[in-house]
Simulated scan of single mutants.
Amino acid sequence: MNTTTMVPFVKWAGGKRQMLEQLYIRMPDTYNAYYEPFVGGGALVLSLAPEGAHINDINQELVHTYTEIRDHLDAILEKLMELDKVTCTREFYYDMRSSYNEKRLSHSYDTEMAALFIYLNKHCFNGLYRVNTKGEFNVPWNQKQSVRSMDMENIKAISAYLKSVTITCQDFEQALTEAKAGDFVYFDSPYAPLNPTSFDSYTKEGFTEEEHRRLAALFRRLTEKGVSCMLTNHNTELIQELYEGFLIEEIDVRRAINSDPKKRRGKEVIIRNYGEAIKPKRRTRKK
């Protein structure tokens, strides 16, 4: 394992930094290969830094940025330092967003695109990643003129670690075709909507109810193969139904990305096919 504690280089919807302690205490005692098919910001894998990890995401721009950090870090750092020297005015932000969209739409997946991906994440509203029907990144500016785009020590540690990691961009089932008995899979799965009628408007790479059912079926197949699996999601009737029979534990969470402060607290579940329920610590009264 890497001795440097790493944190995500981007803010990502559904990121698990606040849940890490809850996840740590529920990890299997031992496992062989580590798989994370919905890596997103990678809070868990980066904090654990397991050897021989396999990370995957369907978001091509995110995966491209991971591979560029691994393969061309110096060029990314040079570009980010150049961008950070400029005061991020409204005009500059939207110019950089236009430059990024030109690259995205022309499939110019180069080092500059990866640097712009990181820069926009740090300077857009709430670190969201969203594209419109034309495929253009359209998140507005966060109105902060001076934000550091990177932590130099952290991103260097990530680059070094990723050199031993298998990185893929494919469907979650394809990403797990090699998973075997004794391996561990963490599913930071796209959230099921809290309102069961809102699937049509729910868009994290178009993850539908059918996709959630396909994921649950995969979870059961992996269980039969002897693969240790842990999954996090909203605590909804659908999720409870799909993972009936597995160990389901409810925890309180904060949802920092929600624009409505009243909706920033909620319930999520951690689902496992191994282990026992974690007993809550008793509070002792001071005498």
Score class of each variant (00 low, 15 high):
L218M: 12
T223H: 15
I239F: 06
A179L: 04
E250N: 13
E250S: 14
V253I: 15
D171E: 08
E249C: 09
F184N: 10
R213F: 01
L222K: 02
H234A: 12
V185M: 08
I239Y: 06
K204I: 12
P193T: 03
F184H: 09
Q240K: 12
Y202D: 09
I239P: 07
L194F: 04
S201K: 14
T203D: 15
G182C: 06
S228G: 11
L215A: 10
E244H: 12
I251G: 00
C229K: 10
F187L: 15
A175N: 01
T177R: 01
F199S: 04
L194R: 01
E210P: 02
D183G: 07
V253A: 12
L222P: 04
F219S: 08
K180C: 11
K180E: 13
E211Y: 12
A175D: 02
T177V: 06
E211G: 03
S198C: 07
E237N: 13
S228C: 14
T177M: 01
Y191V: 04
L242A: 04
Q240D: 10
F207E: 03
Y202C: 12
R213I: 05
I251H: 08
T208M: 06
Q174Y: 00
S189Y: 04
Q174K: 09
E173F: 00
T203L: 08
G226L: 06
T223S: 15
V227E: 06
F184T: 06
S228W: 08
K180Q: 13
E211H: 14
Y202L: 15
A217P: 02
D200K: 13
N235H: 12
T197F: 10
G226V: 06
L218R: 09
K204S: 13
L215N: 04
E250Y: 03
L222V: 02
F246D: 13
N235A: 15
S201T: 13
L247A: 10
N235G: 07
K225L: 14
G245Q: 09
E178N: 05
L247K: 09
A192L: 03
E224P: 00
A217C: 04
R255A: 09
Y186W: 05
D188M: 11
T232S: 15
A179V: 03
S201G: 14
E241Q: 12
L176S: 05
G245C: 03
K180P: 00
F219P: 08
P196F: 05
E211V: 08
P190E: 06
D200Y: 11
E178P: 00
T177W: 00
T208D: 09
R213N: 06
G182T: 04
Q240L: 11
F207C: 05
T232C: 14
E210S: 14
L194C: 02
S189Q: 08
S198V: 02
R214M: 01
L222M: 11
H234P: 09
T177F: 00
Y202M: 13
K180V: 04
T197H: 11
R254C: 11
Y202H: 14
F172Y: 10
E224V: 14
F219Q: 01
E237D: 15
R254H: 13
A179G: 02
P193V: 02
N235C: 15
P190T: 05
D171Y: 03
